[in-house]
Design a protein around this nucleic acid. Structure first.
Lengths: 128, 128
DNA sequence: GAACAATACATGCACTCGCATCTAATGCAA
DNA sequence: TTGCATTAGATGCGAGTGCATGTATTGTTC
């Protein structure tokens, strides 16, 4: 494995991540009152079209379980999602997006896309 | 610009960043008592072979000025760098790496490389 | 069924971060 | 020189994060 290449890739990831996170924090925050984590969680829920267990969300967003728990708490306080106990396993918690949450997400999505398009405009064609 | 591609790239960056950061925090922390930011700053200084102004470092690491100021403070407390006033501009501060800092960096470098190689082993060939 | 490990989520805590602000030094204009 | 805007870096503060732990529920083993 070419070490030089690995380090370059890492620097690329670091730079894009920092730039995008910073811009998302600013744009999503100022225009829609959402942090990147809040948006990410809403986005994941919207794309599933169903109730999700907190644990399922944990696999998809890059947050610790505790951080996710607090993001959901903030979203609930803002009335963008609601939490409900899971009947099959009463330890579990379902997270449902509310109409207001769906609306907020729909409103924020173009902002996120705009920011990302801007930042990854010159992105090299990753062969994923 | 293909929106799908942009979003995929973003997800790729998010995933690699989270994985690498997490692993670096663990490995560098446990084995060498360094956080990712501390290592990054040492690494930048080593690669310049000279005194650096804090401001110059600020351009190279992805940290706010205040965060960098504190990282340097921590490194100084650990005796890995030393701060000295800049004679041409007495507002400025030079950061010098100490012998101990250089040694610690040399010791941590293989760990960092190993972590990155592991994580970017399957990295697509970015055409940077 | 009782005791105990395991799991799902919440929470206390320490830490790092960015923003706003502060202090000190510099530059520039009147 | 004096006065004021600017710049370098430090610091108070609030917010978000991960780790360790707490609480409640479930599964398992005897």
């Amino acid at each position: 494995m070419d070490e030089q290449f690995v380090v370059e890739t890492w620097h690329y990831v670091l730079a894009k991540h920092a730039k995008a996170m910073c811009a998302l924090e600013r744009e999503l925050g100022d225009r829609h009152g959402l942090g990147p984590s809040e948006f990410e969680v809403l986005d994941r829920i919207v794309h599933h079209h169903r109730k999700l267990r907190i644990q399922e969300l944990c696999d998809e967003v890059h947050l610790s379980q505790s951080a996710l728990s607090r993001v959901v708490a903030r979203l609930e306080k803002a009335a963008l999602v609601s939490r409900g106990v899971c009947d099959e396993d009463r330890r579990g918690v379902f997270v449902c997006i509310t109409d207001e949450g769906r609306a907020r997400h729909a409103e924020a999505l173009p902002t996120q896309r705009a920011v990302l398009s801007e930042i990854f405009a010159d992105a090299p064609a990753l062969t994923l």
